[in-house]
Write a protein that binds this DNA or RNA. Structure first.
Lengths: 120, 120
DNA sequence: GTAGGATCTTCAATGGTTTGAATATTCTAA
DNA sequence: TTAGAATATTCAAACCATTGAAGATCCTAC
């Protein structure tokens, strides 16, 4: 079994990319944030997201097909939950990276403004 | 300033999604893996990736535009490096999630095979 | 200083993939 | 069987990746 399939990049890179890509959508990020504190029904999620039922279901199924979510049925409702808690950590890390990056540009901006005020 | 822009999902979710999506491509995952141990030139990366120069440059620029990478020029070469080390952590977390998920399906498969061998 | 070569980036066109919305279908509980 | 809920399918529009050509930028050597 070759490490590098026809595509070009190694299998492991491809697997990571698949996971990150499925997480890389605003609706799906919102879903994970909603599920951070525990399971919820599809109808509940749909309402919180402000989406059509069909669209909600499609995003949920994308996440489940990569094993990010799992579901159980109870009567007429289906409950979804996050399968691996490290998925939440991953999103939290993403948040930290973004925050740092924004803080850096903020402080750069402040420096530029200071300089403008004092120079010449 | 509204939390929820016209798009639908909150700004924060959108920002996270942008970051995760730019990381969600096999070539860009490979780039980050190559840069894990330190900076490298574009030509070096290009060769390791097996890509066209222009394609390499565009992936690098996508990563830089979201502040994932930074670069410096030295003579005719440009060196790229990872800006925030937590980006590496994020990829590592992704790897762990995938590994666990694969192990789970492996053991499920093993159970199925055992049952097949002993039943009837 | 300027011609040539090397490295990297940008641009525009193409082909492919993903998304969103609407509709149809399946599933479940009563 | 019927209503309600969830999922699957479809198709047009938006988006992304790749390619090749042209454009910068910098070094070296004459």
């Amino acid at each position: 079994m070759p490490d590098r399939p026809a595509g070009g990049q190694p299998r492991v890179s491809q697997a990571k990319a698949r996971l990150l890509r499925v997480l890389g959508h605003p609706v799906r990020v919102s879903i994970l944030e909603l599920l951070r504190d525990g399971e919820r029904t599809v109808g509940d999620l749909q309402q919180a997201l402000g989406l059509e039922a069909s669209s909600t279901s499609q995003h949920l199924s994308a996440l489940r097909s990569l094993d990010v979510l799992e579901s159980r049925r109870e009567g007429t409702n289906v409950y979804y939950r996050i399968k691996d808690p490290r998925t939440t950590d991953l999103l939290e890390t993403a948040r930290k990276i973004i925050t740092t990056s924004l803080e850096d540009s903020q402080s750069l901006l402040a420096q530029l403004n200071d300089r403008e005020a004092t120079e010449d």
